[in-house]
Each structure stands twice: as structure tokens, then as C-alpha cells.
């Protein structure tokens, strides 16, 4: 899985115009992460810094997993070319999240979580494009909550800010995937 994750054909970013907004937003997140860290995080206590590193590493773990899940979807042969290009774009965002979060961990003096050798996904049920989209949507919806649950925990508010920026990206992914499934893309006003 890890080798094929680096397949350049699958990582080339899609230029579909409706996705450009989220790509721009992500760059914003990366910038916030990288520029925000040295100023305030190093002023925190050691314990607080260790906790920020743990939060970032748990997020990195989930992001690696999302990258692997999109890889599975991309290689499944079940996706139409339009959906495949969306999947590859979203996978690219998750890779950018990993990079930005890993940089933040390093700046705090920690070691970023590595991807696992192997991920176990419910492959036996991923037998159609819709099933793959539903699975991805479930992960993205969960990611919204995971970041919502991380934001209040950071000692360094700049990291909270960066996590909010990533949360927005995940929420857009979720909406686009729901739309592709023929569901109301924005099924409510509040999500936690």
C-alpha cells in the first residue's frame, strides 16, 4: 500500500474548477501551521507541548489512513473517471495535511507518526462506486468531528486555527462526496 501511494499517476492534482477553492484553503492551513508554531508553542510548558504533539500525531495517523483509503478506492477499478479524479484530488489534500501536521510536530521537537505498513478496510463490502463513496464520506464526516474534538485541546491557539482550516477542507470533501451520492450535500446547520 505505501509504495503504491507514491504512484505519481495517482497523485497528480486534479484541476477541476469546483475543487480549486478547497485547494487554496488548504494552502492557508499549511501556512498557518508552519508560521504559527514557533511563536507561541515554545512558550508553553513541556507537558502542554507534549500534548500538542500527541494531538498532531493522532491527526497524522488518521490522515495517513485517509490517504490509504483513497488509494484503495482509486485502485479499485470501480470509480468512473470523474469520480476518480475527485478521489485523487482529495487524497492529495490529505497528503498535504500530513505534510503540514508533520512539519508542526517537528517544529515542536517531536517525531511525526509514520504510516502503518498495512491498513485493514472493509474491502468485501466495497463492491461498487457508491459503496466506495459512502465509505469515503463516512471517513470525511468523522474527520470533521475529529478536528472539532481536537481544536479545543491545543495549548497553542495557532494550532487550533490550523486544525479549523483542515476541518473546513474535510467538510467540503464530505459535501462533495454526498453530492456525488445524490444526497443533500449539506444535511444540517450544525456538526460536532
Amino acid at each position: 500500500m505505501t509504495d503504491s501511494q507514491r504512484d505519481p499517476a495517482l497523485t497528480a492534482p486534479s484541476r477541476r474548477s469546483f475543487l480549486v477553492g478547497s485547494q487554496l484553503l488548504l494552502s492557508g492551513a499549511a501556512v498557518a501551521l508552519m508560521s504559527g508554531v514557533p511563536t507561541r508553542a515554545f512558550a508553553g510548558t513541556r507537558g502542554a507541548r507534549a500534548q500538542d504533539i500527541t494531538i498532531l500525531n493522532t491527526a497524522i495517523g488518521a490522515e495517513h489512513e485517509a490517504v490509504a483509503a483513497y488509494q484503495l478506492g482509486a485502485e479499485s477499478g470501480l470509480l468512473s473517471s470523474a469520480v476518480l479524479s475527485v478521489a485523487v484530488t482529495f487524497q492529495g489534500h490529505h497528503k498535504e495535511h500530513v505534510e503540514a501536521l508533520a512539519k508542526a510536530v517537528q517544529q515542536l521537537g517531536g517525531s511525526p507518526a509514520e504510516p502503518l505498513d498495512k491498513y485493514t478496510f472493509p474491502v468485501s463490502s466495497l463492491t461498487s462506486e457508491a459503496a466506495v463513496l459512502e465509505f469515503a464520506a463516512k471517513l470525511e464526516r468523522g474527520a470533521v468531528s475529529a478536528y472539532a474534538g481536537a481544536i479545543p485541546l491545543f495549548e497553542d491557539r495557532d494550532l487550533s486555527n490550523a486544525a479549523a482550516s483542515i476541518l473546513a477542507d474535510e467538510a467540503m470533501h464530505w459535501a462533495v462526496l454526498r453530492s456525488a451520492l445524490g444526497l443533500d450535500p449539506v444535511p444540517g446547520a450544525f456538526f460536532s
Binding site: T58, A62, T120, K138, L139, R141, G142, S145, A146, S192
Partner: peptide, 15 residues
């Protein structure tokens, strides 16, 4: 439980 799905599933170890 959908809030937990980025990190957990019933049947597989994840994050």
C-alpha cells in the same frame, strides 16, 4: 458514532 468514524470502526483497528 459517526463522529468517531475517522479513527474507529467496529470491525477493524484503525487510528
Amino acid at each position: 458514532y459517526a463522529r468517531c468514524a475517522a479513527c474507529h470502526s467496529l470491525t477493524e483497528n484503525r487510528t
